[in-house]
Design a protein around this nucleic acid. Structure first.
Length: 466
RNA sequence: GGUCCUAUCGUCUAGAGGCCUAGGACGUGGCCCUCUCAAGGCCAAAACUCGGGUUCGAAUCCCGAUAGGAUCACCA
């Protein structure tokens, strides 16, 4: 039997990191077993579901590279099917009509809570023979005795006493189906072999198993993935910083960095930290998913991002980098220096956004000098050095880091200077500040004409200040 | 409150009864390298929640306590 997994978000907001990890695990598991990964949108809550949310989720999935093989399917398009199945259960007396109103139910719940009892539906409509001409909901008839157990692929054997399971509503009084029913009908009809989802669904599982049985459908294998927590060990939320997948895109993260991070949050393969997507697919297994919840750690994510920026060819980084440059008002598209520029910055940028920020000086016409930097390094005694350097540089036929370095060292020898005495003033002349890539590689990336022009500008600046 | 799940460095984790003086990674501190900043290299501090069993032997198995978390809708 070919493996079929699914990711089934409800379109009530953006794709958050928890959902993304669930999607990733489903994706990896399906790919690992050469199966299918299906996307299904659970939009049975008409009031809270939006098209924007659906689009945001799809965008997030695509950005992460979690390609689905079938779907997206929408539950809202399958209402007739759910109703048909609910009626089948009604006819088979595996479900019944409940005429209690929401108000009555709420009131009984309050009383139960007050008296310290479990706020469960008391089943009073279970054996009703009359059928008043009133609106009704359809309730699933849950067994009163015995227990329901399943073997979770991650958590192991889990058992529930049926007496703790209530008769849940499967069709509301407006004839719309409810979640626990839809999931089962869909997963059964779509032939899911593995249901991999957050462990907040563990408590729903026995109810769903009972419905599978009532429907006469085979059970899938269940795997409940632990939650992702914030630094204070409570459920991850906006309080803990960005939770939206796309927010990480905007911060300048590489999608694979997030994928790698998410994969390692709750899953491991020995001591390995860095995984290509192929390795993830090859090595992923449910048995290596941990049982306990994990804290989302932005620092480690950043480290991975830095790692991938560092090790990606500049060529691949260019198209990802340009939009961030654009945000700074710089259109770098088509600049043939882009790859060289990125190469000078790759090792010192944690994010693409940071990289764009650090790269801005390469593209501007004139640098603005940082006050402190200029005061310290753009001094009169630098002028003759700048002039000499300029002369050397303009004589270079090949303007690469190596030649520039050779020429510069020669100059230092002539002037009996140390490199340190040259580097900082040049750095300020070229970038306006005191922090930058190494000056030789930087000059190469900047280009001969522009480098010389900047040194001239610095000389002019110093003269003006005299 | 009922039910369910979980418990190794601050964090992510390795660990499938002796290979554990508990390993790796992020972060932190120190040193080295060095034209600034990074990157890199080396070193360091840092954990088996507690209590009972089982066993010749337990981080690993069992029970209990404690602590966290999840869930209890005509939401998904």
């Amino acid at each position: 039997m070919t493996v079929r997994t699914r990711f089934a978000p409800s379109p009530t907001g953006y794709l958050h990191v928890g959902g993304a990890r669930t999607a990733l695990f489903n994706f990896l598991f399906a790919r690992r077993h050469k199966g299918k990964f299906i996307l299904r949108i659970e939009d049975t809550d008409a009031a809270r579901s939006t098209d924007e949310a659906t689009k945001a989720i799809l965008d997030g999935m695509r950005w992460l590279g979690l390609d689905w093989d079938e779907g997206p399917f929408f539950q809202s398009a399958m209402y007739d099917e759910y109703r048909r199945r609910a009626n089948d259960l009604l006819e088979a007396r595996l479900a019944y009509r409940c005429f209690c109103t929401s108000e009555e139910l709420a009131q009984r719940r309050d009383v139960a809570m007050k008296e310290g009892r479990a706020p469960m539906y008391d089943g009073r409509c279970r054996e009703r023979k009359d059928s008043p001409d009133k609106p009704y909901a359809v309730r699933f008839k849950s067994p009163l005795t015995g227990s329901t157990a399943f073997k979770d692929e991650i958590k192991g054997e889990i058992t529930f006493d049926n007496s703790t399971l209530e008769d849940l509503v499967i069709l509301r009084s407006d004839a719309t189906p409810t979640y626990n029913f839809c999931v089962v009908v869909d997963d059964a009809l779509m032939g899911m072999t593995h249901v991999i989802r957050g462990d907040d669904h563990i408590n729903n599982t026995p109810k769903q198993i009972l419905i599978y049985k009532a429907l006469g459908k085979p059970l899938p294998i269940f795997a409940h993935v632990p939650m992702i927590l914030g630094a204070d060990k409570t459920r991850l939320s906006k309080r803990h910083g960005a939770t939206s997948v796309m927010a990480y895109k905007e911060m300048g993260l590489l999608p694979h960095a997030l994928v790698n991070y998410l994969a390692r949050l709750g899953w491991s393969s020995g001591d390995q930290e860095i995984f290509s997507i192929e390795e993830l697919i090859e090595k992923f297994s449910l048995e290596n998913v941990g049982k306990s919840s994990g804290v989302f750690n932005p620092e480690k994510l950043t480290w991975l991002n830095q790692h991938y920026i560092k090790s990606s060819p500049a060529k691949e980084l260019v198209p990802l980098f340009l939009p961030f440059l654009k945000e700074l008002g710089i259109d770098g598209a088509g600049d043939e220096r882009n790859e060289r520029i990125i190469n000078t910055l790759k090792e010192r940028a944690k994010t693409l956004k940071e990289m764009a920020f650090a790269a801005a000086f390469y593209y501007t016409d004139k640098v603005e000098y940082d006050k402190k930097a200029a005061d310290k390094f753009l001094l009169p005694e630098a002028v003759p050095v700048f002039e000499a350097l300029r002369l050397k540089l303009s004589g270079l036929k090949v303007f690469d880091a190596k030649s520039i370095e050779t020429a510069s060292i020669a100059l230092l020898d002539e002037k009996a200077m140390k490199l340190g005495a040259l580097a900082q003033p040049v750095r300020v002349a070229l970038t306006g500040g005191t922090v930058s890539p190494g000056i030789f590689e930087m000059m190469e990336a900047m280009g001969q004409a522009k480098t010389i022009e900047r040194i001239e500008q610095a000389e002019a600046f110093i003269r003006e200040r005299l």
